[in-house]
Amino acid sequence: MAAGGDHGSPDSYRSPLASRYASPEMCFVFSDRYKFRTWRQLWLWLAEAEQTLGLPITDEQIQEMKSNLENIDFKMAAEEEKRLRHDVMAHVHTFGHCCPKAAGIIHLGATSCYVGDNTDLIILRNALDLLLPKLARVISRLADFAKERASLPTLGFTHFQPAQLTTVGKRCCLWIQDLCMDLQNLKRVRDDLRFRGVKGTTGTQASFLQLFEGDDHKVEQLDKMVTEKAGFKRAFIITGQTYTRKVDIEVLSVLASLGASVHKICTDIRLLANLKEMEEPFEKQQIGSSAMPYKRNPMRSERCCSLARHLMTLVMDPLQTASVQWFERTLDDSANRRICLAEAFLTADTILNTLQNISEGLVVYPKVIERRIRQELPFMATENIIMAMVKAGGSRQDCHEKIRVLSQQAASVVKQEGGDNDLIERIQVDAYFSPIHSQLDHLLDPSSFTGRASQQVQRFLEEEVYPLLKPYESVMKVKAELCL
Rank of each mutant, 00 (worst) to 15 (best):
S434M: 12
L469G: 04
T450L: 07
A453V: 09
R85A: 02
T350A: 12
E401Q: 11
R137C: 11
L179K: 02
A103H: 06
T267D: 08
I265Q: 14
K402G: 03
R245I: 01
G418W: 06
Q325T: 09
Y432R: 07
Q456P: 03
M389C: 10
V138P: 11
K101Q: 06
C113T: 01
L444K: 03
M292S: 03
G203P: 00
D129R: 05
I265R: 02
D73M: 02
L482G: 12
R459L: 13
F95R: 01
E60K: 14
E343W: 05
M181D: 14
K229A: 02
A103F: 12
K134I: 03
L222M: 07
V254T: 12
R234K: 07
E401R: 14
K101W: 15
P366R: 10
V219I: 06
L183S: 13
E70T: 13
L423W: 06
R33N: 02
T313Y: 09
S151P: 15
L252M: 09
A348D: 04
I57D: 01
Y13V: 15
Q320Y: 09
R329A: 04
L319M: 11
V363I: 13
L252P: 05
T94K: 10
I122N: 07
M181R: 12
K134T: 12
M26S: 04
R83M: 09
K402Q: 13
M225I: 03
E250S: 08
L352E: 11
D398V: 13
Q439H: 04
F345W: 02
L55A: 02
A143W: 04
L179C: 11
S31P: 03
C305W: 01
R396E: 05
R33Y: 09
I269Q: 04
K147M: 11
T94G: 14
K264I: 01
K218G: 12
R270P: 10
F460Q: 02
A163R: 01
D216L: 09
Y13F: 08
W175Q: 00
A410E: 02
G200K: 00
D398I: 02
S151Y: 10
V429M: 13
H437T: 10
H97I: 09
F232I: 11
D191L: 07
A431R: 10
D120V: 08
D144P: 12
S112I: 02
T347N: 14
Q416I: 11
Y365V: 11
C27D: 14
L130R: 12
A381S: 05
H97K: 14
S474W: 15
L275W: 12
V115C: 10
D182C: 01
H442A: 14
H86W: 02
G109Q: 02
S395T: 06
A3Y: 11
A348E: 04
M26N: 05
E279G: 05
A480T: 15
K170H: 14
L271G: 07
L255T: 11
C173P: 02
E376L: 02
H159S: 01
L258K: 05
I369R: 05
L258T: 09
S67F: 05
H93K: 10
G214S: 11
G231Q: 10
A206G: 09
Q63T: 07
L271S: 06
L142E: 04
H442E: 09
I72Y: 11
P293N: 01
R338Q: 05
G231K: 09
W43F: 12
V254Y: 15
L362S: 08
S9V: 10
Q184N: 13
K170L: 09
C266Y: 04
E60L: 07
F28S: 06
N126E: 15
L183T: 11
R396A: 07
I139R: 01
I57K: 05
E417V: 08
L341A: 08
E464M: 07
G394A: 06
C27F: 06
M278F: 10
P318L: 05
F36I: 15
I386F: 02
M65G: 15
A348N: 04
H97M: 09
D430P: 15
P16K: 12
S140R: 13
L124K: 11
A102G: 06
E277G: 01
L272T: 07
Q63E: 04
A206S: 01
C399L: 07
E360C: 03
V405K: 06
M387L: 10
M387Q: 05
G203V: 01
E228N: 00
W39L: 03
C27E: 07
A260Q: 07
M380Q: 07
E370T: 12
S253V: 10
R125K: 15
T267N: 07
T450N: 02
E328R: 01
I424K: 13
P16Q: 15
D120W: 11
H217K: 09
R396G: 06
E64L: 07
S334F: 01
A3M: 05
S207Q: 04
D59N: 07
L482N: 08
Q210A: 08
A102F: 03
S67A: 09
Q456E: 01
M65R: 04
A49V: 10
R459A: 11
H93T: 11
C99R: 03
Y34D: 01
D117A: 01
E64N: 10
T204S: 11
T350F: 08
A103V: 10
K187G: 14
H263Q: 00
L42F: 02
C266G: 08
S454C: 06
M389T: 04
R396M: 01
D87V: 01
D420S: 05
V390M: 11
I57G: 02
A388F: 05
A163M: 10
P446K: 03
Q221A: 10
F74T: 07
V465G: 09
I373D: 01
A260R: 02
L121Q: 09
E481L: 12
D441C: 12
R137I: 09
L135W: 00
L155H: 04
L406V: 10
S359K: 10
E80K: 12
F145C: 14
M292C: 03
I123W: 03
L258I: 09
E60D: 03
Q320R: 03
V405S: 07
G4Y: 14
R190D: 08
S395L: 07
E280I: 00
L135D: 02
S23Q: 10
D117T: 00
G361V: 09
L468S: 13
E417C: 14
Q41D: 06
D6R: 12
Y466D: 13
L355G: 00
S395V: 04
K233R: 07
Q439V: 12
Q61V: 15
H159W: 00
G104S: 10
P471G: 13
H437N: 09
F449L: 06
A235S: 11
Y294P: 01
K415F: 06
I351M: 10
Y466I: 13
E425T: 12
V115G: 05
Q177H: 11
F95S: 05
N274P: 04
S454L: 12
E463S: 11
R196Q: 10
P281D: 14
D32Q: 11
D268W: 03
C98K: 07
M380P: 01
I123N: 09
P293M: 01
R296E: 13
S474P: 14
T267A: 08
C172T: 09
L128C: 08
R234E: 15
I106Q: 01
E473V: 14
S395G: 08
H7E: 06
R85G: 02
D332F: 02
F433Y: 12
E80G: 11
G109N: 00
T201S: 06
L124H: 14
L346S: 15
E277M: 05
V198A: 13
S23Y: 15
L272D: 14
T204W: 01
A392E: 10
Q41I: 15
H217Y: 14
K170N: 04
T167L: 02
